[in-house]
Every structure is written in structure tokens, then in C-alpha cells.
Amino acid sequence: MAFLERSTKNTENRYWYPEENTFPVSNRYTTGVAGQRFFGELKDNARITGTRCHSCQVTFVPARMFCERCFARLDDWLDVGSEGTVFSYTVAYVNRDGSAKPEPAIIAAVRVADGILVHRLLGCNAGEVTIGMKVQAVFRPEAERTGSILDISHFRPV
């Protein structure tokens, strides 16, 4: 038997939509062993840090506890500065729910040491962004920093 009842318009299907259609759960994420120090440096010192694996010659940003390549435990912490280069970018015109943004937003993947930070890019128009362009992190004032990636307010062109 093939299933003969075929629907061509999904709006005509009957569906189940419970009265208590909520599932009010959430998640809480600790930042981890490396994150504890990385975000502490952002919050307390407005400093971006990385960890260096000397055998693989890689500096991970954000800092990590271990090297994914050779499984060494990493304890060489470096201040990698607040500058990076645009590795790639996109211009977002819609919000997560599909509504239009009042202003397009530039989201950049910024290469800092050997890592990538995805963040907002302000201070230039979409047409002015180029891959490889130098950008710099702008930190929130100390009193507003909480130990989050948003302690970096945004990046701006150097």
C-alpha cells in the first residue's frame, strides 16, 4: 500500500498545538577552565588573551585549555592585543525572526592571532569593508563589563 492520503497544501493539514504549548526551559553555560581566565582578562583588564601550543605553533583565540591538534594541556597565556584583521564578513538585513533591521549590521569574523572572534563591526559602511582590513576591539567601560564576549562592545576600523 502506498499512503494514498496525500496532502498538497500543508495549511489544510490538521495539526496538534497543545494549550500549554510552552516548554519554558533554558540553558546555563559555565565558561569553563579556560573561559574563566579568558573572560576574567576581558572583564578586569580589557585584554584579549590566547593560549599558545609551542609544538603545533598555534595561538588559540579565544584561549583554550588544550590543543585540539596534539592534545597538550596549554598553560602559556599571551596578551594578543586588541587588533585583528577581517577574515570574512557578512551584512545582515534581517533579524533572527525575519523582521527587517532598521540599519544593516556588519558581522565580521576577525582574525586575532590564529583564532577568530565573530563580532559586530561598526564605524564603517558595508561598502567600505574589505577582507584583510585592520580592525580594533572597542571595550565597554569597566563598570559595564560582566565577563562576557559583549565586554567587547564591537570592532572598528583602525
Binding site: 500543508n10 496538534w16 504549548n21
Partner: peptide, 22 residues
Amino acid sequence: KVFFAEDSLNCRYAWDMGVAIE
């Protein structure tokens, strides 16, 4: 004492019932 982030998916579903359950 430790840093953490919180997030909620806040998503909803509606399920097609299919032939038998309908």
C-alpha cells in the same frame, strides 16, 4: 564566582497529526 551565560531557545512546535492519530 564563575562566569556563565544563559540562553533560552523559546521555540514552539506544531505537529501534523498524521492519518491514524487524526
